[in-house]
Design a protein around this nucleic acid. Sequence first.
DNA 1: ATGAAATATGAATGAATGCTCATATATTCA
DNA 2: TGAATATATGAGCATTCATTCATATTTCAT
Lengths: 119, 119
Amino acid sequence: MVEKDFSEQEHQAALNHLKESIPANEELESMVNIFKAFGDMTRVKIILALSKTPLSVGEIADTLDMSQSSISHQLSLLRQLNLVTSVRHGRNIHYRLSDQHIITIFGQTKDHIIEDEND
Amino acid sequence: MVEKDFSEQEHQAALNHLKESIPANEELESMVNIFKAFGDMTRVKIILALSKTPLSVGEIADTLDMSQSSISHQLSLLRQLNLVTSVRHGRNIHYRLSDQHIITIFGQTKDHIIEDEND
DNA sequence: ATGAAATATGAATGAATGCTCATATATTCA
DNA sequence: TGAATATATGAGCATTCATTCATATTTCAT
């Protein structure tokens, strides 16, 4: 095979610029961290619960049948990533999703899965 | 506080149905697994590279400056999740994204991050 | 002030995970 | 067939991570 066909040429062109086209670690890290946050059943459930209504830590723990401590740890992580915000109301602290974008991403992913099942 | 105000009533109503409104583990698991896959720098880079052009294992390893073995292991995981597909071409195996949905999800997440930086 | 209730936090532990190394498998070519 | 090239795979190791347990902190009620 002396001559490459056209699509092979395209491939070569893409290959040449590929290395530079991939963003540096620092730029990708926040995205990766958000996906990491979504990659845990407990956190996904917390987020789904908060998508219905703001909730206190205790309410989330009750809803998910999990310990207060575990939920609190996870909320702390979600808060660090700005995925949730918290406001104290008396003895309770109300957590809510920081933006609705999150739910859109969930929906998009569900779409991917559904498309997948139709094979 | 004898009477609850209106938004408090809404909250109670939401709380009552909350437990049932959260999907069972089996239904969430595939979503969580996809997010887990996206929650790793190497796999994100592989996906971004494949979003430009189909690539062989070796080409990916070269592009990302990582070992053949490591890339192959990760590709195997991405394949299990139907995020990529592979076709053998002679000695090489060409990997490609199984659908463009994936890139949409990445974009959506980037939007979330950008919105976030404008606080 | 004091006790109770809600939440946060640090340390410890077991499980999951990513990489490496060695090796197996598959394909081409001479 | 046999050597070379590309990819896959299993075991081992170090690290990360989710939960638990014990305890600290904050706020309310009395």
